[in-house]
């Protein structure tokens, strides 16, 4: 049988096209594998949330007792000066587990000192000594004090805010705020060096109260009040100086006169 040469060429061309198509199809198939979506991963039974920083309550709980009073309240004490035929009250604050700081005039001429804490707990004073050149006194206690103060490194400046913690009029524990308004020499001539004048309200009975800075550190000790309502503080530098020089003598008692 004879064939037409034109048909033969067409057949050859179709064969080549078919081969090319098959090759193209194979390549397309292989390429399609790359763009096909993968099979989904199995779904987990639970997911772990992003870890968030949990605020620690330690910063505030360090300052709190189990009854919720903060450290500055727990370190404040009420001092009852039982004299010979007289009675007066003052304030003080703990310097360590067995030592109080107060004013010399708070403990002067006593037959007995009776100390009570913020929660009414009574403590016995075992020894009392007074500073020679400042209206300051130290009282040792038999029982342990609930909390004690940290002394600031420097004196407050005029304009600084302070907080006074004490027992004005011998009544309930009170926390009042004020500002240092000036410095001056001691108007009562009880102490050497400069003293601080503040507008923090104090009353008789507030003597010996601790004045605290914003961090709760002692920056002064209340010891007097002016007729204009200003209160006077012995600065912490004076307290530090007296403590370092240890210029203390026995407190005068009304029973040894």
């Amino acid at each position: 049988m004879r064939t037409d040469p034109v048909s033969t060429n067409l057949a050859r061309r179709a064969l080549t096209t078919a081969r090319a198509g098959l090759l193209l199809l194979t390549c397309a198939g292989l390429a399609a594998c790359g763009v096909l979506p993968p099979v989904a991963d199995p779904v987990p039974t639970s997911v772990t949330p992003t870890a968030l920083a949990v605020p620690s309550p330690a910063t505030s709980s360090d300052l709190l007792s189990p009854d919720g009073f903060d450290a500055v309240q727990r370190m404040a004490v009420r001092i009852r000066n039982v004299g010979c035929g007289r009675l007066s009250t003052g304030s003080g604050f703990a310097l360590d587990p067995h030592t109080l700081v107060t004013n010399k005039h708070v403990v002067a001429d006593s037959a007995q000192l009776q100390i009570s804490t913020y929660d009414g707990h009574d403590l016995t004073a075992s020894a009392t000594s007074t500073a020679e050149l400042a209206d300051l006194a130290l009282v040792r206690t038999d029982g342990e004090l609930p909390s004690w103060a940290t002394l600031a490194d420097t004196d407050p400046k005029v304009g600084d805010r302070i907080t006074v913690v004490g027992y004005p009029e011998g009544r309930a524990l009170t926390v009042t705020d004020g500002t240092v308004v000036a410095t001056t020499t001691d108007p009562l001539n009880l102490s050497l060096g400069e003293v601080l004048v503040t507008d923090a309200p104090v009353e008789p009975g507030s003597s010996g109260s601790a004045a605290l800075d914003a961090d709760g550190r002692v920056v002064g000790v209340v010891y007097a009040k002016s007729a204009s309502g200003h209160s006077y503080l012995l600065p912490v530098s004076t307290l530090r100086q007296v403590l370092e020089q240890a210029t203390f003598g026995p407190a005068p008692s009304c029973t040894t006169r």
Partner: peptide, 28 residues
């Protein structure tokens, strides 16, 4: 409740202190 309890503790401590003062005055 804690605030109330604190106020009560402070008030009771004050009452106790005032009673102590009164007792001491009476003793004197």
């Amino acid at each position: 409740q804690l605030d109330t309890a604190q106020a009560r503790i402070t008030a009771l401590a004050d009452e106790k202190a005032q009673l102590g003062d009164s007792n001491e005055v009476q003793r004197q």
